[in-house]
């Protein structure tokens, strides 16, 4: 049996070729953004979960004899305090590790709350239409016209700084984008046949929103939530840095930076390590978010 010449000369596309296990692993590595994932695991997730186990010291134990010890590689540094200590003798490394827990907790809570409320309002606005839609979207417009950092500062001034305030304030800053995005998506889904059929079959509005529209906007919500985590970490650390977020001696990255700012000339390690923790975490989160967006929801590209 002879094979036609043309068929022989055309190489098979790589994706169709038989691949061994190794090939599959390599494929996955290429498709998954491995470096950002590793950075995130090392800087954020693992420290957040295992902070109590891996932190070498208590992050809030004052130790006045070890104040302002430099990092281990500088003269006067010791292996006990790898990244040095601050003014109160707190171990910087331990505080960064515990700070990851704070950052992650605030991000998850604030995005859960803001994203949840925004999604519900977006669904409601799209499905109900009419005055409900008008009212919700006007509020969204006003929220988006207000410079966020100022709104946050006013709210913190009113509620007083602290963990709950920060979560609430950030949630308040976030919901509008979710509402607007979900509404836009839901509007086009609402017009499709299966929604009309569900209505004819007697499904309640709540059921239609929750079981028929929501699953179709879920990807969008997940992508937006991921993209917002970096934003939330920036907001939280900025508020703490300004003295309008978390309060001392909570091991929050922004607070550590604020504390180190005044000693930037004599003890650079105080501001430098927490700053890098923030920058690298947000960078990795943004890369991951971009990747997720391209995979799940390319429509969001210009958001």
């Amino acid at each position: 049996m002879t094979t036609p010449v043309a068929a022989q000369s055309i190489p098979e596309p790589a994706s169709l070729r038989e691949r061994g296990t190794l090939g599959k692993v390599l494929d996955t590595v290429r498709r998954v953004p491995i470096i950002p994932l590793v950075i995130l695991l090392v800087l954020l997730v693992i420290p957040a979960i295992f902070a109590d186990v891996i932190a070498p010291h208590d992050p809030v134990r004052v130790s006045l004899t070890n104040r302002l010890a430099p990092p281990v590689w500088l003269e006067g540094g010791s292996t006990e305090y790898l990244l040095g200590t601050d003014r109160q003798g707190f171990d910087i490394l331990s505080r960064i590790i515990h700070g990851a827990r704070i950052s992650l907790a605030i991000s998850l809570l604030a995005i859960g709350l803001g994203g949840g409320v925004g999604t519900v309002l977006g669904l409601l606005a799209a499905y109900r239409g009419g005055w409900v839609d008008t009212v919700i979207m006007r509020i969204v417009d006003i929220k988006l016209a207000f410079p966020s950092i100022l709104l946050a500062l006013v709210l913190v001034a009113v509620m007083g700084p602290g963990f709950q305030t920060v979560v609430l304030v950030i949630a308040l800053l976030l919901w509008a984008r979710f509402a607007r995005m979900v509404r836009g998506e839901a509007l086009s889904i609402k017009e499709q046949d299966f929604i009309a059929r569900a209505q004819v079959a007697g499904a309640s509005p709540l059921r239609i929103m929750a079981r028929h529209i929501f699953p179709n906007v879920f990807n969008t919500v997940v992508v937006l939530a991921t993209l917002e985590i970096g934003h939330v970490i920036i907001l939280e650390s900025t508020l703490s840095f300004l003295g309008a977020g978390l309060v001392k001696p909570t091991p929050a990255w922004g607070l550590m930076v604020a504390d180190g700012r005044t000693l930037i000339v004599t003890a650079w390690w105080l501001f430098f390590f927490p700053t890098m923790a923030i920058v690298l975490t947000v960078l990795a989160m943004n890369l991951l978010g971009d990747w997720l967006r391209d995979r799940l929801d390319p429509k969001l590209r210009n958001v």
Partner: peptide, 10 residues
């Protein structure tokens, strides 16, 4: 990318 990822105080 750095501009997106670093807070202005950093």
């Amino acid at each position: 990318l750095l501009g997106q990822s670093a807070p202005s105080f950093a």
